[in-house]
Simulated assay, not measured.
Amino acid sequence: MNGLREAEPTGEREVGPELRGRLTRSELPRTNDYKQAGERFRLMEEWERDDLVANFIANIGEATHEVQQRMVWHLLMCEDELGNRVGEGLGITADDVRHLEPLPKQTFTDSERQRMSNLGKNGPRDVEGLTMTHCVPNERVVVKR
């Protein structure tokens, strides 16, 4: 919110392996993080979606209202269900965040701009033909041996 600042160093002054090389700064090529995140959410098992929503509500709920609104906006850009459910848990609707603009360094494709103009009303992302392996065990399932 007030720009990035380097934290004060703590602990040992030197840790880990010694590395030599050049540090460079460059912009990453444009990515569509919202699409990937939205598709991932759609491909989750129902219990995984429920857990993710609950975790977002609990953790984002500790942030300032301004941050909560921005996060709901980002989640709505990913997937309507995700943003609407987290927003409901925080008392924030798509209408409350519709006025927010992309962050200054974000560049949107036409499809992302279209998604933003229909914020919260885009419907589920199409994941036909996509599959995902589930690496998180379902702790709710009792395995009898």
Rank of each mutant, 00 (worst) to 15 (best):
residue 50 D to M: 08
residue 66 E to Q: 15
residue 40 R to H: 13
residue 137 P to T: 03
residue 8 E to G: 01
residue 68 Q to H: 03
residue 79 E to I: 09
residue 26 S to R: 14
residue 137 P to S: 02
residue 58 A to M: 10
residue 9 P to G: 07
residue 145 R to V: 10
residue 41 F to C: 06
residue 26 S to D: 13
residue 92 I to Q: 03
residue 8 E to V: 14
residue 83 G to A: 03
residue 108 F to T: 00
residue 28 L to N: 07
residue 126 D to Y: 08
residue 27 E to M: 12
residue 47 W to G: 13
residue 105 K to C: 02
residue 5 R to F: 09
residue 68 Q to T: 08
residue 135 C to I: 07
residue 101 E to N: 13
residue 85 R to D: 04
residue 55 N to V: 04
residue 9 P to A: 12
residue 113 R to W: 10
residue 100 L to E: 04
residue 129 G to R: 00
residue 36 Q to C: 03
residue 69 Q to K: 15
residue 64 T to K: 11
residue 83 G to W: 06
residue 50 D to E: 15
residue 3 G to I: 08
residue 140 R to N: 15
residue 132 M to R: 15
residue 140 R to D: 13
residue 129 G to A: 00
residue 49 R to F: 06
residue 51 D to Q: 12
residue 71 M to S: 15
residue 67 V to L: 08
residue 113 R to S: 09
residue 71 M to D: 11
residue 134 H to T: 03
residue 55 N to E: 15
residue 99 H to A: 13
residue 140 R to C: 00
residue 97 V to G: 04
residue 18 E to V: 15
residue 63 A to I: 00
residue 112 E to V: 02
residue 111 S to W: 04
residue 7 A to I: 05
residue 12 E to G: 01
residue 27 E to W: 13
residue 121 K to M: 05
residue 10 T to S: 11
residue 26 S to Y: 04
residue 95 D to G: 04
residue 35 K to I: 02
residue 145 R to L: 13
